[in-house]
């Protein structure tokens, strides 16, 4: 942010030119603007790639085996976690092997019973509610902001765009204490407002940026045509841009959901009643240092909490990976 101010003067008040550095990926034809990534090149064409036709079967097999081995190494921690859910708590810290000495379902039984009289399903529902609000807020506010940055020319847009990009670099820890004091004064502790208000106010710059990039690749002819028909910005936004923005909206929705689902620090700070806890905080309760540390239940609950993310991943991985590929979003 401190740098933002100094750069603002150097930035032409033209929103399009401002994005440059971060758009290099899209603008040089090097990697993938959304439109190209959405249509992977045909198989035959990809075969022509480096040494494609001349690959020996032996080399192919060797590489394939290497990839398989790599996959095994990378997925091992997840496999370990799956097995660990069957270990009794007392084996943690003692049995580091994959297979439990005495396999048990107690961990899952315990998890299903819930915590502090609150059933596990409640935490799932809370997480779901927060995540859905986060998605809704992100889609509405980020698409509006992105439209303004990408399509409307007005005084100050360049500087504001730079500010928005600047927040991408901002370490979140700088603002957490004042934010808490603020929400506390407003009496919003133990509500979901602090968790989702930022989403309705487009505070997650990644999404704004992602959508700006996408909108820039939508041909202007369409808006021009609408404009000639007498449409104002709200109409162009709603009936031209939003429908075309769908792929970016889907990608954003999935990321907003998963990030909200995994978020740990904000709910820890803002939620105080167990019946309002989201999953990650509920998980933490299983693992308390001053009383019995129940690793078994923690692991089982963590595993359960990962399942929705993994399912999302399985079903929507195409969108996720495209989102990452096009915009450099990170999980």
């Amino acid at each position: 942010m401190n740098a933002t101010a100094s750069s603002a003067s150097a930035v032409p008040a033209d929103s399009a030119a401002t994005s440059v550095a971060l758009t290099t990926t899209a603008s040089n034809g090097v990697p993938a603007a959304p439109t190209t990534a959405a249509h992977p090149q045909p198989w035959a064409e990809r075969l022509r790639r480096i040494g494609g036709p001349r690959r020996s079967p032996l080399a192919m097999i060797v590489w394939f085996v290497i990839l398989l081995a790599l996959t095994a190494v990378i997925l091992y921690p997840l496999i370990w976690l799956a097995f660990a859910t069957f270990k009794p708590s007392s084996e943690f810290g003692q049995n580091f092997s994959l297979i439990p000495w005495e396999a048990t379902l107690d961990n899952f039984r315990k998890v299903l019973r819930g915590i502090a009289g609150v059933p596990l399903s409640r935490f799932f529902l809370n997480s779901l509610l927060v995540a859905c609000l986060a998605v809704a807020g992100t889609l509405i506010s980020a698409s509006m902001a992105a439209y303004a940055f990408a399509r409307i020319k007005f005084r100050g847009v360049g500087g504001l765009f730079t500010c928005m990009i600047g927040t991408l670099l901002l370490p979140f820890h700088v603002i957490i204490i004042p934010q808490y004091i603020m929400f506390n004064k407003m009496g919003l502790i133990d509500t979901y407002v602090p968790l989702v208000i930022g989403k309705f106010l487009a505070c997650e710059a990644f999404f704004v940026f992602l959508m700006v990039q996408f909108i820039r690749n939508i041909p202007r002819d369409l808006d021009e045509a609408a404009r000639i028909d007498g449409a104002g910005h709200p109409r162009i936004f709603l009936s031209v841009i939003l429908p075309l923005l769908r792929p970016a909206l889907i990608t954003s929705a999935i990321f907003a959901f998963i990030w909200s689902w995994n978020d740990f620090l904000s709910p820890l700070i803002y939620l105080t009643s167990p019946e309002r806890y989201t999953l990650p905080i509920a998980l933490r309760l299983f693992n308390d240092a001053t009383s019995t540390s129940d690793y078994g239940a923690t692991v089982a609950a963590s595993f359960a909490a990962l399942i929705p993310v993994l399912l999302f991943f399985l079903f929507f991985q195409r969108f996720l990976i495209q989102g990452v590929a096009t915009q450099g979003l990170k999980g």
């Binding site: 502090a116 009289g117 309760l285 308390d288 129940d294």
Partner: peptide, 11 residues
């Protein structure tokens, strides 16, 4: 403060 065992007792 405590864990779910203690929470059950308070309950």
């Amino acid at each position: 403060w405590g864990n779910d065992v203690r929470a059950g007792m308070y309950e």
